[in-house]
Design a protein around this nucleic acid. Structure first.
Lengths: 255, 255
DNA sequence: CGGCGTACCGTACACCGTACGGCTCCGGTA
DNA sequence: TACCGGAGCCGTACGGTGTACGGTACGCCG
């Protein structure tokens, strides 16, 4: 990771790439689109850390350095992966706004679609979003997701804040779930199995401290019993979304 | 980054490390505590990507491989960094619960303290939290943060969910802010300067599409004018927290 | 004073991103 | 048709990473 020295990512080039056609093949058929797709496929299957220029090139039966003809560097490649993954989020720019059930159903739809994409591509959490925030698909997404909130009496800034609040919740919850799934998969142990070996060990360290942490003990045990880990994420998603939408409802009522 | 093959992180060893004393020096004064502190210092100053075993060792004037006498590997080191950074969050386990103003003030205090830590150590967002979730400081934190919610009529599971909701919001918002600051620092451009060069370019790509994205255009412009980037994060933090607490209030009222 | 456990660390290996320079092939023009 | 410039392709090399392995040297205990 000595990539720090390639200091100048040239925003003009990045933008052109993001908004370009991606499908003009070179003489060996190599395409920006193909490169990005291969990278996404790799990330979906084996995690973002196994998306290396060498791996992507091998997948495409191309020389490693050939990729650099189409893509300035790895940073821009991940930017493209990010934007691309959001390409088919909504069939139509009005799909969220047209959900039956008003703004609340619209935003629930938005949350659910984002949740699904995040679950399908857990590596998204590891890429920094800022630089790709101006890609074509992200722009489309922003418009589609704002529309259910339009015309409710909220100010423009409030609309943006409300959407950001919802999306932050979805991302954060999905991220926790992804991390959980990943560690589970890596250890090869189910949650119960893991606790079976770890619990007693932990008890030894916390012995004597248990009375200092009564609430944590009680609540931790209760949540542990209520959920098997898989459900936990879904519950957190629903619970938080309900509270947030209630809060936004209150704000709308005040307007 | 070929660390995938070190497959067995031995949870027993990790736990012992997390809950151990960290201050038994070897014959050259090397200590777990010292190693972790050096790593944190490095991450604070130059980002997590510059925390390498070689860098940490150099900082301590020790050989690279000497670190492995005290720490099993880099993964465990980052786990320790994570737990350590939350060591001094609260002066007392009742500090949040004792804030004047009831549960709401308590949770605002919790949110603010978390916000401050996240802002002081932006690299936390890049480390996976799950594995250190059982460290001593994290356990203490969990207890302290649950207490303001105890005795309000909420169920145990609801208490956990409400806390998670608040913390997820703080983390997500702080993460966005950190990413924003980072890209700004790396490009060396202020937000205005950046938009001055990028805006016109973007307009060219979006020309003709502007009428397809009326809401995005209007809202994006409004938020852009309202905030200079620095304030944006603070606003998102406050707005979201207010909505969330309103939503939780509603739930409490129903109980 | 021997011996041994453990802290320390030098070297080596496989992997990473990518700078550089050479090769090959295609399209356009003379 | 002949050529030649530029663009696509890619082999090699450099400096970085985490860490396995094996050797050195210190301090403690009998």
């Amino acid at each position: 990771m000595s990539g720090k020295k390639s200091a100048a990512p040239d925003p003009a080039r990045s933008l052109a790439l993001l908004w370009g056609s991606h499908s003009k093949p070179g003489r060996s058929g190599l395409t920006v689109r193909a490169i990005v797709d291969a990278a996404i496929q790799l990330a979906d299957a084996h995690g973002l850390e196994s998306v290396s220029m060498r791996q992507v090139a091998e997948q495409l039966k191309a020389g490693t350095m050939s990729l650099y003809t189409h893509v300035p560097g790895k940073g821009e490649l991940t930017d493209l992966m990010f934007d691309t993954v959001y390409a088919d989020l909504y069939a139509d720019v009005d799909e969220p706004a047209q959900q039956p059930g008003g703004w609340r159903a619209g935003m629930e739809f938005v949350a659910r679609r984002n949740w699904e994409v995040l679950m399908a591509h857990p590596w998204i959490h590891e890429v920094t979003a800022v630089r790709s925030a101006l890609g074509p698909n992200i722009t489309f997404k922003y418009e589609a997701e704002l529309r259910p909130l339009d015309g409710l009496g909220l100010g423009d800034v409030e609309m943006d804040s409300a959407l950001a609040l919802i999306l932050t919740h979805v991302q954060g919850t999905a991220r926790a779930a992804a991390e959980h799934l990943r560690t589970q998969r890596e250890s090869g142990l189910t949650d119960q199995e893991w606790w079976l070996t770890t619990g007693p060990l932990l008890d030894r360290y916390m012995a004597g401290l248990a009375d200092r942490f009564p609430v944590a003990g009680r609540v931790g045990t209760a949540t542990g019993e209520e959920f098997q880990a898989a459900m936990d994420a879904d519950h957190a998603f629903r619970f938080g979304l309900d509270r947030i939408l209630d809060g936004i409802q209150l704000l709308i009522d005040q307007r």
